[in-house]
Design a protein around this nucleic acid. Structure first.
Lengths: 109, 109
DNA sequence: AGCTGATATCAAGTCACGTTGATGTGATAG
DNA sequence: CTATCACATCAACGTGACTTGATATCAGCT
């Protein structure tokens, strides 16, 4: 059975939606490789603090990142689960696209 | 060198955006495996003809699908290129998330 | 205690996106 | 030739998303 279909289509779409925003994608990419605190993300993206905080909240609530508070700093780390699910979903689609049959199902019954 | 960074972040985000809509994702999934004409997509999604046509235009202009006109029917096929690029992009991110170091870069210089 | 710096939350404004009904365009059927 | 069907385009509407300035919270420093 297809692994991707374990999740509802709308939920999968929402997961892709997490990466559909340039700034959010940038944050995820920065977080892929090392743990960073908000100030780093602000510095490297040039975005306002409140904007970064907003997107981090979205990523946090979606389970894409985890936050660890340490004093006045909050360190964010990327969780692989969600990315893995998306990767599996895409792999299925790509595979399907490759072997897409050329035969056409009749149109009007 | 990272394959994903060959494309601008905003463009990559736009590619993910293609799959960020439930209906569009559904269309892509239906197209993964077999060539279909618009009427099939309308029938299987239950969406209005004009809505389907709109999303097909978006997918077409993004290069995610190709259209082949045959009489009054238009057959759509999924192209692997874009999905492959996204899969590669995700693979990088997922890998980065796995090996994300625990050491924290100093915050305030 | 008082101040400052790091973040999160709130409220508001703007704008892009998806949906839809009306309409146009070819192509096939009768 | 005319009617019908498949599909695309257009214009308009509504909703949701991103951004941002103001504000609240909380930790560490003096």
């Amino acid at each position: 059975m297809a692994v991707a279909s374990a999740i509802a289509p709308s939920e999968r779409a929402a997961m892709f939606g997490l990466l559909a925003d340039p700034l959010r994608l940038r944050i995820v990419e920065l977080l892929a490789g090392e743990e960073l605190c908000t100030c780093h993300l602000i510095a490297e993206t040039g975005a306002k603090q409140t904007t970064i905080s907003h997107h981090l909240r979205i990523l946090r609530e979606a389970g894409a990142v985890t936050a660890a508070e340490d004093g006045r700093f909050t360190w964010y780390r990327l969780t692989p689960h969600l990315l893995d699910a998306l990767a599996a979903s895409l792999a299925e689609l790509a595979e399907g696209a490759e072997r897409a049959g050329r035969q056409r199902v009749p149109c009007a019954p």
